[in-house]
Nucleic acid binder design. Structure first.
Lengths: 356, 356
DNA sequence: ACACAAGATGTAATCGATTACAAAAATCGA
DNA sequence: TCGATTTTTGTAATCGATTACATCTTGTGT
């Protein structure tokens, strides 16, 4: 078993370079970090030694000495959700530009995994935290928030002192969604929610109820189905929908995946979308434009959300935050596509009769 | 502007705890890392001091002293591709279990971004690298590979000494795909590739050609369209397809997203799938089960790929790699769904006539 | 050529932990 | 109780950089 093939090669330290160039370590360090501070001749001498030795500074030593890690922790509920992937892209664009690295904290929809990342943050492995989770704050994360570590919440307004929020106007958008469906003539609604313990859900449901009230309806005019932000939640909602005798004619899904799952399932039972039931999603993921029919949905400015969130976090880290930056709420865009349309009472009734 | 609200609280060092407990820093360190080595009484004393002070070790100092970062770099071509998200999940499951963190390197399909991450690796910010990219190795990454840093290649066989590969049997699967289509009676094929500079593509195309040969066809019996692993590649291929007068009756797409893009586009022109053209994808992403019709595809064991890859990397890091672990090739599963079927010559011809 | 200011470089402390080695304390048998 | 042995604890070096301060060079004006 030949181990030595892949043993690390001898590591070159700054002292080695200094010796090679015949200068002190301080000079080498200066050449590398602030070339203006050394004479041209010395500079060239050192650079030659750096080149010949292949020296690369040990970043851990730098981090320790400079007291910053140049890393940011991004805690996301689930990596395979395109929404978070897209936000992460925005975050990445902004952070790598500033030389920061991203450590990912994937909860995989299991909240108890938060603890691990709280530890990571508290042990100063990162200079700041970006919270993409929409969980309602609990003791777990309290330490983190109290530690003074810069934190920015994306995706969910954590109404707490010292934590800036960069979020979308989901409440307003959800409300508009209901109003839009009401304008199309719908009277009975279905609401496919997210996990009840998430702030996102609280916001969106509040917006939904506002919309219901604004359009002159009551609690009795809609049904609510609950589950995490995944396809199967929509499928489950569809099963329940199919059992109903007085089916809603319009469905609002709090995420595109649920909407897609719902549509797939009801179409398998010959329920037509949008003739028999209109469906509107939320998120605007890329897939939503490739389903059949294409999904009407509210597009979140995901990439921008990530960029802006990262920017705010960097400002927090660099202590250049101004009060007016505290809270940012980005607008959504309604993408009117094929899954919504006016109620067709006749069609709907005949379908219902044939299903009996 | 009240800065102090979010200034970091005073940091507690091991020396503070030692003073509080009336012991030396060495003892505190021992209590925390190896409790067996200290007397029960001292242990309790120290733990009480730790508790009271809220001490958490500074991980950067630990990293420097212990000469390992407990971090792994994962370089992925594109975060929003569900394939990589899913692999990443597997990686994450394995690594967090072992206490390792993940730093992500997102190339966003732009290869020049590799350099940044090579630097990151070379400056010893991580203990190992997981390469999800399928790029053919170049000078950029050579340094990294020569540095002795543990590297494992997933997704693409980098045939180089010292780099274990954990990959899927894409060559075999692609070949089987062609044979499967040939068995259904197809004679003219379309091949929607990935980016030509990727090893993945080289492997899959080789498998495709093997399949073509094995089924008794020649180079003249298929067309090839090229582009990255995204929806729009499939759309572009569809545009080209629609212009052809002797259209292929079976399409192999080297990724599900292309396949879906293709289907969406041709259906818009009333081309029926699978009656007019059969389509088979590659990857088995979750969404492929929610399209209409549902996509026939080869499912990659993505989560397992991630887990196994991470496991191999950890073994490499811990120097407990055995030669038989060098190369692992996981099998794929054919998911026969609705986008493939036997050729229907009559239908096809009539369609073609009407399109003239 | 000299005094003095400005600029370049070196010395050594520092960041905050771990750990080899030395020293002290506890345990044990006679 | 004493000395030998074992166990526990403390001292100080170490990981590899950065940087305040001291010291040495260089340049400038007279």
């Amino acid at each position: 078993m030949s181990r030595k093939r892949w043993r690390a090669v001898k590591e070159i330290r700054i002292a080695d370079v200094a010796r090679l160039a015949g200068v002190s370590t301080a000079t080498v360090s200066r050449v590398l970090s602030d070339p203006e501070k050394v004479r041209k001749k010395t500079h060239d001498l050192v650079m030659e030694a750096v080149r010949r030795s292949g020296y690369i500074p040990n970043s851990t030593a730098q981090k320790l000495r400079m007291r910053r890690t140049m890393n940011v922790l991004v805690i996301a509920p689930r990596l395979t959700n395109p929404v978070f992937a897209e936000i992460l892209r925005g975050v990445d664009d902004e952070l790598t530009q500033s030389g920061y690295g991203i450590i990912i904290g994937n909860l995989d929809n299991r909240r108890e995994r938060e603890a691990r990342y709280v530890d990571l943050a508290l042990s100063r492995q990162v200079d700041g935290v970006l919270l993409l989770t929409g969980y309602i704050p609990e003791n777990d994360t309290r330490n983190m928030r109290e530690s003074g570590l810069p934190i920015v919440a994306l995706c969910a307004a954590i109404h707490e002192d010292g934590i800036p929020n960069v979020v979308v106007q989901d409440r307003e958008a959800t409300r508009q969604a209901v109003e839009y469906l009401a304008r199309l003539g719908h009277r009975r609604f279905g609401y496919i929610s997210g996990t009840l313990s998430s702030i996102i859900e609280v916001e969106r449901f509040a917006g939904f109820q506002e919309g219901i009230a604004a359009a002159g309806f009551t609690q009795g005019d809609f049904v609510r189905w609950e589950g995490p932000f995944v396809f199967s939640t929509g499928v489950a909602a569809a099963e329940a929908f199919l059992q109903m005798k007085d089916r809603p004619t319009a469905i609002f899904a709090a995420c595109d995946e649920s909407a897609i799952g719902f549509i797939k399932r009801v179409r398998a039972e010959r329920v037509r979308v949008p003739q028999d039931v209109s469906v509107i999603g939320f998120d605007g993921i890329e897939f939503a434009d490739y389903t059949e029919p294409t999904l009407t949905t509210f597009r979140q400015p995901l990439h921008e959300l990530g960029r802006v969130g990262a920017d705010v976090l960097l400002r927090l880290i660099h202590r250049e935050m101004r009060p007016e930056d505290w809270n940012i709420r980005l607008p959504l865009t309604l993408l009117e596509r094929e899954t919504t349309g006016p109620v067709l009472h006749k069609d709907y009734k005949s379908l219902r009769r044939s299903a009996l």
